[in-house]
Design a protein around this nucleic acid. Structure first.
Length: 575
RNA sequence: CGGGGCAUGGCGCAGUUUGGCAGCGCGCUUCGCUGGGGGCGAAGAGGCCGUGGGUUCAAAUCCCGCUGCCCCGACCA
């Protein structure tokens, strides 16, 4: 490609509101252009990188017996209604035309399970793994970070179909390894962590995360062992002992102490010597009218993780309870505890659902609300002084907590989610009765797995990890071109040499970007650094007088003079 | 969806406080000089000041509504 003919051009300044480095550099270097919030055009350079990543993914998927196909992006509504996700997936783009309704492809489980229903009839038809690379559309409430969170994006999604859970369990690690291979070939350092499977449903999932302070995800990793998990799935040891002697329950006046920090300071104890109550209104999907009050209880120094709480409840939606709802269960906002409330004995019982974190037993003689305005109790102990409905791990893991696997401490990291693997099990196949006949002629549900990586996000992550103050530094396998060729000055011999190198390098199998513009050298060098191809070859009068051209790797400081005749062999040797 | 910010030529910005000719840098066109890290000079093109209403002799500037974009949070397959 001759730079003088390429579509679009590099710009000196990125839009001021581009916050992430990848966003700034990709715009400046003419890889992407914004078309709307969370909607981008891939310019020719950017699209070449997408195709390079695409090739890596196809290669790794094919190696584990994947078959690439191409599924549609317009999904008839009945397919999504059949799995129940037409109503439960709130980022789904829906279209209506006449009497027909469609969803834009937010993901492709519905299409796959529909295909499986038609194509898989016997255990002999499995195992299968199919995948494709195509557009996804999600009505994100807030697109952000350039290519990090988009409304329209490109995803590689793969789906495995197996006869039973054991077969899925056996295949799953191959996919995880393929994921590590993909990320490694793209030059990205990932950590695999156990994660919550969220709306996807299923039995297990792993997230591939890249540590990044501007990431929107966070995960927990042990400083000492290999324990790692998304905060929504991370556990930790509740440190603290029950006191040997239980104090008496005493009601004390605590004026203006509505927060844990205030009451702890007023009484003169650590926040870990208190209990924290958080109130939610919980609704199961499709049963909005049958909402229930949920009382979440943890030790005062810990926070409730809503996803963990939701999982403890078996799903559904949570929102903060209103003051009226709190008063309606006879609790006092700011001074609440389960003491004196009609606590449900179990989920069937009508009382108040109290979900408590085990941390309320790691300690004792707590300060808790007295359900009376401006009063707290001291010396509160479970189960002596109050009942709960159930105990569950609902507290958020934080930096400094004790690792659940070893003696180490855990640290919370901000991260970008680069990929996700789910063991879906029979969540989708049962919804549409996608079954097959086993060896005994009995119908069995298909066991599915689904595995996704966002290509645009991955491209952005590559830039986040591979750049310097001058521009992008593309890893060789994903670079849009191999060589940035440029000439300096107007000297006839220089021009002729550059033009013939342009042809010869391409004949030797290299992808070459030739800066043939009549521009000053500094200008060309700045552009070369910005675009960030692995090799820069400079033809100038000075070097050529000695029969040399200058070769520089983008990520190295030193330049080498190579005789023109040996350039191709040099580049092949150093590929 | 809650909070905050921004909207002036392709990009980056000034001008808005205190209403009175729409400006600067980069980029673009033409010409000349220059030629190893975004060079210099000269002459040009390009803007309904996001949008709808209002106040006023007069609105980029003041008032009200709307839209778009960015950031934080919530949510997230």
């Amino acid at each position: 490609m001759k730079l003088s003919k390429s579509f679009g051009k590099t710009v000196r300044e990125a839009p001021a509101d581009a916050d992430m480095i990848s966003h700034q550099l990709l715009i400046r270097a003419n890889f992407i252009r914004s078309t709307g919030a969370g909607i981008y055009t891939f310019m020719p350079f950017g699209y070449r990188v997408i195709r390079k990543i695409w090739a890596i993914m196809s290669d790794e998927m094919d190696k584990i017996n994947g078959q690439e196909l191409w599924m549609p992006n317009l999904h008839p509504a009945p397919l999504w209604q059949a799995t129940g996700r037409w109503d439960s997936v709130d980022v789904l783009f829906k279209l209506k035309t006449g009497s027909r309704e469609y969803a834009l492809s937010a993901t492709h489980e519905e299409i796959v399970v529909d295909l499986a229903l038609r194509e898989i009839s016997s255990y002999r038809d499995m195992p299968q793994m199919i995948y494709h690379i195509s557009k996804k559309f999600r009505d994100e409430r807030r697109a952000r970070g350039g290519l990090i969170r988009l409304r329209e994006f490109v995803m590689k999604d793969a789906y495995s179909l197996d006869v039973n859970e054991a077969a899925l369990d056996e295949y799953y690690p191959e996919m995880v390894q393929a994921y590590f291979n993909i990320f490694e070939r793209c030059g990205v350092t990932v950590t695999a962590v156990n994660a919550d499977s969220g709306n996807m449903g299923g039995t297990a999932s792993q997230e591939f995360v890249v540590i990044h302070e501007q990431g929107e995800d966070s995960f927990i990793a042990c400083d000492n062992c290999d324990y790692a998990a998304n905060v929504e799935a991370a556990s930790f040891v509740r440190e603290g002992e029950k006191p040997s002697q239980l104090n008496e329950l005493v009601k004390v006046l605590t004026p203006n102490c509505k927060t844990i920090a205030q009451v702890a300071a007023f009484i003169g104890v650590e926040t870990s010597q208190t209990n924290k109550a958080v109130f939610y209104w919980w609704t199961m999907p499709g049963k909005e009218e049958n909402g229930r009050f949920v009382f979440g209880l943890t030790r005062g120094d810990l926070d409730i993780n809503e996803t963990k709480l939701r999982n403890a409840l078996g799903g559904g939606e949570l929102r903060a309870a209103t003051e009226e709802e709190i008063i309606a269960i006879s609790a006092t906002p700011g001074y609440a505890s389960p003491i004196g409330l009609n606590v449900a004995k179990d989920f069937e019982d009508d009382g108040v659902l109290v979900i408590a974190d085990p941390s309320i037993e790691a300690g004792g003689n707590f300060v808790v609300g007295a359900n009376d305005h401006e009063y707290h109790f001291t010396g509160a102990n479970y189960p002596r002084d109050f009942a709960i409905t159930t105990m569950a791990d609902i507290a958020q893991a934080e930096t400094g907590h004790h690792c659940p696997q070893c003696d180490g401490r855990i640290t919370a990291h901000r991260a970008i989610e680069a990929g996700h693997c789910f063991k879906l099990g029979t969540r989708y196949s049962e919804a549409v009765e996608a079954t097959f006949l086993d060896e005994n002629g009995r119908p069995q549900p298909i066991f599915m797995g689904s595995y996704g990586i966002g290509l645009d996000r991955l491209l952005a992550i590559i830039v986040e990890e591979h750049h310097d103050k001058n521009g992008i530094i593309w890893p060789a396998e994903v670079a849009p071109y191999d060589i940035h060729l440029l000439h300096i000055g107007k000297d006839e011999e220089v021009l002729e040499t550059a033009v013939s190198l342009y042809t010869d390098l391409q004949k030797a199998g290299f992808d070459v970007l030739y800066d043939d513009r009549n521009a000053r050298p500094g200008f060309k060098f700045k552009d070369a650094d910005l675009i960030g191809l692995p090799w820069r070859v400079t033809v100038g009068k000075r070097g050529l007088a000695e029969g040399n051209v200058e070769v520089k790797k983008r990520d190295a400081d030193e330049r080498q003079l190579i005789p023109v005749g040996q350039l191709i062999q040099f580049l092949i040797d150093n590929r």
